[in-house]
Amino acid sequence: MKTTGIHHVAIISSDYDRSKKFYVEVLGFPIIQETFRAERNSYKLDLRVGKNAQIELFYFPNAPQRFSSPEACGLRHIAFKVDDIEETIFYLNSQGVETENIRIDEITGKKFTFFKDPDNLPLEIYQN
């Protein structure tokens, strides 16, 4: 198998409007397409991340909860590249988003930290 990159990461939200506002207005991901599926009473919001990747933000009524700590089995977190981690942390904090303390990747020497989305999913910012 030969891959050429990651196409998308799918996230299911518990509150569509709250999550849409977070990912579009706070994190600044442009909307590619928004779809409402009446037969399922569900939404799918495609968001552009960088030049080549997407987030598919879904909403399904009464979706089951999932344990989602960064150390739980399964998808651990999504990491976004940033040029200036301190500036990004300042911005996130000014938007009411709490961030953890900056850590240093012991392998690369790069700075990174975690924060949570409205459904408490772990997200990471990683300095280029």
Rank of each mutant, 00 (worst) to 15 (best):
D15A: 12
N41I: 01
G96C: 08
S94E: 12
S69I: 03
I102T: 14
K21N: 13
Q65R: 07
S68L: 03
R37P: 00
T99Q: 06
E98V: 07
I102R: 09
E25W: 07
L92E: 04
A53Q: 15
V9H: 07
R103E: 11
A38N: 03
K44D: 05
T108L: 08
S19Q: 10
L75F: 11
F90Q: 14
P61T: 02
D105M: 05
V26L: 03
D119W: 08
A72L: 01
V97H: 02
D119L: 11
R40F: 11
I89R: 14
V97Y: 01
R66Q: 10
S94D: 15
S13F: 09
L57E: 07
D17V: 08
T35E: 12
I6N: 00
P122Y: 08
S68C: 09
N93C: 11
K2V: 15
F58S: 07
L121G: 10
F112W: 14
K20N: 09
I11G: 10
K20H: 13
F29Q: 11
I125V: 15
E39G: 05
I102S: 10
K110V: 02
F80L: 13
D84Q: 07
I31F: 08
N41T: 08
R76A: 02
Q54T: 11
G96R: 07
V26P: 06
N52F: 14
E98K: 14
Y126A: 01
L123N: 10
D46W: 13
I78Q: 01
I12Y: 14
T4L: 06
F112I: 00
N52D: 10
E100K: 13
A79N: 00
L92M: 08
N62K: 11
P30L: 04
L57Q: 06
E100Y: 09
F36W: 04
P122V: 13
D117W: 09
P122R: 03
S13R: 06
T4M: 10
I31S: 08
H8P: 00
Y59I: 05
C73M: 14
I102C: 07
I11N: 06
G50V: 09
H7S: 05
L47W: 01
D83W: 01
L27N: 11
N120T: 12
N93R: 15
V26Y: 08
C73R: 13
Y91N: 12
S69W: 06
F90W: 09
R40S: 10
V24S: 00
A10E: 12
S68Y: 01
A79W: 00
K116E: 12
L121V: 12
I104C: 00
F112R: 02
G109N: 03
K44L: 15
V97L: 02
Q95A: 06
S42M: 12
G74I: 07
L75Y: 04
H77G: 00
T35V: 14
G109M: 04
H7Q: 12
F22C: 09
D84V: 04
